[in-house]
């Protein structure tokens, strides 16, 4: 299972004075099993880009290949593609509509034409994966808290059994606890279900902790495609395009400027603490 993007561009309002190159010659491959962080400021083209990945939008030029097949060729079943490449939009709780949570999660499997028993089985399994306790399953989705609604909505996509799961700002508007719950859940899904994750975010701190490959988008182009360490070491460039590195990177950078010879390609608080402790002898405390 692999997704290949071959030199795609996307132009809004083509042929008018207002035409914008939302995507500008992007090529990349998404192999199995990666946890990819996709970052870029609002308007950088990341939302347009993820809609290319599951065939919701067709590129103006270029091709998207799923297992070697062009997804915009005649006869290609894009509905099947949408099941394989699951896309969770920003504020996914805004798409809930059924009378109870379980039925809402069954919506996707039903659209795939599965039997009632299979739909239920998949819904139950998906709700377990998002850690939504059974007591909520027969409740109206609108009686749930914001964080629970979001998990129910993610289950709705998960029940399609995607092999790639794209999440667009899944932590937007949540408090620190809700954010950690969602991100840990996503990591758990990657490990347990062996699915590829594409996490779209503008929080570098979130991406740094979880991703093993980071794509940085700016003005419709992929500006960087590398490991978190390498990407965040270029934090000056990130700032120039309205992004920033994780807070710890700045702290380590500052300490280094003040004469403590620490490494600066650090991504988490624990790594930072270890690195500072490794230079314990050079501190005046």
């Amino acid at each position: 299972m692999s997704l290949k993007i071959d030199d795609i561009t996307y132009v809004y309002e083509k042929g008018t004075a207002m035409s914008v190159n939302a995507l500008d010659h992007i090529s990349l491959e998404i192999p199995d099993g990666q946890f990819i962080g996709l970052v870029g400021h609002t308007g950088s083209g990341k939302s347009t880009f993820v809609q290319m990945l599951n065939g919701l939008l067709a590129p103006t030029t270029g091709h998207v290949y799923w297992n070697g097949q062009d997804v915009h060729e005649k006869g290609f079943d894009r509905r099947k593609l949408r099941a394989s490449v699951g896309l969770v939009f920003q504020y996914p709780e805004h798409q809930l509509f059924e009378a109870d949570v379980l039925s809402d999660v069954e919506f996707g499997p039903k659209n795939l034409g599965l039997s009632e028993a299979e739909c239920k089985e998949r819904a139950v399994e998906a709700l377990r994966h998002v850690n939504l306790p059974e007591e909520f399953w027969d409740k109206s989705p609108f009686d749930l808290s914001g964080g629970q609604q979001r998990r129910a909505a993610i289950a709705g996509v998960l029940a399609m059994h995607p092999s790639i799961l794209i999440l667009d700002e899944p932590t937007a508007g949540l408090d620190p606890l809700g954010r950690d719950e969602i991100l840990n859940m996503v990591r758990g899904m990657k490990e347990k279900l062996r699915i590829t994750i594409v996490l779209v975010s503008h929080s570098m701190d979130d991406v740094a902790q979880y991703a093993d490959r980071i794509l940085v988008m700016n003005a419709g182009k992929i500006m960087m495609d590398d490991t978190p360490e390498k990407v965040f070491s270029r934090y000056k460039e990130l700032e120039a395009i309205g992004l920033s590195a994780p807070q710890v990177v700045y702290i380590m950078q500052y300490l280094k400027e003040r004469g403590l010879p620490v490494k600066t390609n650090i991504l988490t608080v624990d790594e930072a603490v270890d690195e500072i402790l490794a230079h314990r002898g050079e501190l005046n405390v």
Binding site: Q51, R79, R82, Q95, F107, N111, V157
Partner: peptide, 16 residues
């Protein structure tokens, strides 16, 4: 805009 977004979100869940 919202209609468009919801429509796409449901299409991502296989809606036709």
């Amino acid at each position: 805009e919202e209609t468009d977004k919801i429509m796409k979100a449901q299409m991502a869940r296989g809606a036709d």
